[in-house]
Design a protein around this nucleic acid. Structure first.
Lengths: 341, 341
DNA sequence: TTGTAGGCGTTATCAG
DNA sequence: CTGATAACGCCTACAA
């Protein structure tokens, strides 16, 4: 095999017997080219195994048709779903997207915003921690997806998010409607947990009930299990005796934590949902497992991603009108972990 | 704020009172620049809020210092971990990486390999389905990470993977060492499942035991639960009566499936590990949950990612020696789902 | 160490 | 629809 140089647009033009300009037009499928020429060009492209250089195109053109997405944690399924929604909308708008995991890159000392700027992206989606300063300095159109904390620092950016406080309300209302009155909340650090926890507290007070919040040191299953063990055993006299002040239901701010609570309950010999009802948050795949069967709150991340994508595309396509921020209301997904008291 | 044009290397040079060449040298931190000049340049860069264009750099230079990673399924934690390992090694080599989800892009009709070629990446990591044809045509140095199936079509590429057949052996050996003899396997479609299943079958025969494989239509929790229900109830006379031909242990080819098996067991009133021992595969976070406490096989994806990264960097840095393929041996992670018979 | 010239592969513009 | 030509921002010699 000959180690030929990469074919360029010139080679394609020559082979197809047309001008370089025409090739460029065909590649960007302009409507004003004859079918005949178009096919000739396409054939030449195939023959030469030609792939246009996005580097050159980006350099020469007025934009790159690419957007950067800053994500916090790849291992969080929420982001993955949101990403899928984003991608589908951005693709529809003709944009390519590249992702950066902020926690990972921070570890490597590289600011993702800076990296995207070097790539000359046309737009930015902020779905993870990001230096507000870097964002404004970059001067690139951006939307915030999900992360409330960020929008506080960047009030001028549109925010697409899920109303997590409403989600907390939802959980409490469901539990209360099942007759529960001693409803505890197992929470943890972080903005999301905070919102959900706040919704819980508000809803409890509205119902005239006393909020009772147990905060774990992190938002993982193990930490929640630890905290729940204490919460559920408190005031009990032996394995079988629980005092009348123990909660009959708990709202955990995410599904792994809810699973931890169920685990603790089982350890203590409590049946779920017989002796204890549990509601989680996020509707992760885990929640649908037979072993867990978790009633939970779903925020539909994919829908959020799509909305963010549409918003950004509109902005990028020159729609000068200001993008509306938008907050989606989560819904309850009933499974088997919550029952009447 | 003035809407100034993006600063270029020329602007930086002028502001720092040096030549454009010198700026270029400083940016790529060449050793042959005086400390004085270097600082002047850096100051100018900061003043102007300058970020060099990777587009221009890539176009002008002989390489882009970027590599493309083709991934199958972002929601699979395995990839996430492998990606982290990859990134750390590639970053150490001065490479940037961009990822593409092959299933997602396929859905959009865009070949990820083609996309990477358009970006002029220097190398490729194949950790998901990819058109073998597109890969060879691209002529870009590549390594295969994990995906055995691919390496069959692209025998000339080095493969870094986990020996999943050995993993299957490991599971059986552990169970057998606990005294189990009727060990079933709950498997599913796909190359990985196939390897694990094969290891299981081989190990069983080596021990003089009869393999018994139940294949679910997909590799999810629900499908496994369904299959396990039948497997465990077969030959039983009522909920409590199991015949002597029922398995006392099962090896599931991944953790969600193992969780499904445990779920089915519980439904049938069987205690785990009292009445049934279960071993999973992958050591997903789920496996460590109190509710599950799964004994499982771990392949250490991060280690694989690092190895792949190192291999690719070596290749890219001109190390003409052929890269060795490498297969890592998984290990057993003991938790609470397997006990003596 | 610095400066200069040429080129990388496209897009954009405009006159044919 | 065609051709020609000028950017685009940087790298890579090579010469000073």
């Amino acid at each position: 095999m000959v180690v030929a140089k990469r074919p360029t647009i010139y080679d394609v033009a020559e082979r197809a017997g047309v001008s370089k300009s025409l090739v460029s037009l065909v590649l960007r499928d302009s409507p004003r080219v004859s079918e005949e020429k178009r096919e000739a060009v396409l054939a030449a492209v195939a023959d030469l195994n030609y792939t246009p250089s996005r580097l050159a195109a980006g350099l020469a053109g007025t934009r790159t048709r690419s957007v950067g997405v800053v994500i916090d944690d790849f291992s969080n399924l929420w982001f993955v779903e949101a990403l899928a929604g984003l991608r589908s909308e951005l693709a529809a708008g003709g944009y390519t997207l590249s992702v950066a995991d902020s926690s990972l890159n921070a570890h490597l000392g590289l600011d993702p915003i800076e990296a995207f700027r070097a790539l000359r992206v046309d737009g930015l989606v902020l779905a993870g921690e990001a230096s507000a300063d870097a964002v404004t300095r970059s001067g690139v159109p951006a939307v915030v997806l999900g992360v409330r904390a960020l929008s506080a620092e960047l009030p001028e950016l549109p925010v697409i998010d899920s109303d997590e406080t409403a989600g907390g309300h939802l959980a409490v209302q469901h539990l209360a409607s099942l007759g529960h009155r001693r409803i505890a909340c197992v929470s943890g650090p972080g903005a999301s947990a905070g919102q959900r926890e706040r919704g819980y507290a508000e809803a409890m007070r509205e119902l005239g009930l006393e909020p009772s919040i147990a905060r774990a040191p992190d938002t993982g299953e193990a930490a929640a299990r630890e905290v729940a063990r204490e919460l559920l055993a408190a005031g009990s006299r032996g394995a079988a005796g629980r005092s009348g002040s123990n909660p009959t239901a708990v709202f955990a701010v995410n599904d792994p934590m809810a699973t931890g609570v169920i685990g603790a309950a089982r350890e203590l010999g409590l049946a779920v949902p017989g002796d204890l009802s549990v509601v989680g948050y996020d509707d992760s795949p885990l929640a649908a497992y037979g072993l867990v069967s978790l009633t939970t709150i779903s925020g539909d991340p994919r829908e959020l991603g799509e909305a963010a994508g549409r918003a950004l595309v509109a902005r990028l396509e020159g729609d000068a009108s200001r993008i509306e921020s938008r907050s989606f209301t989560p819904r309850l997904v009933q499974r088997g972990s919550a029952a009447e008291v």
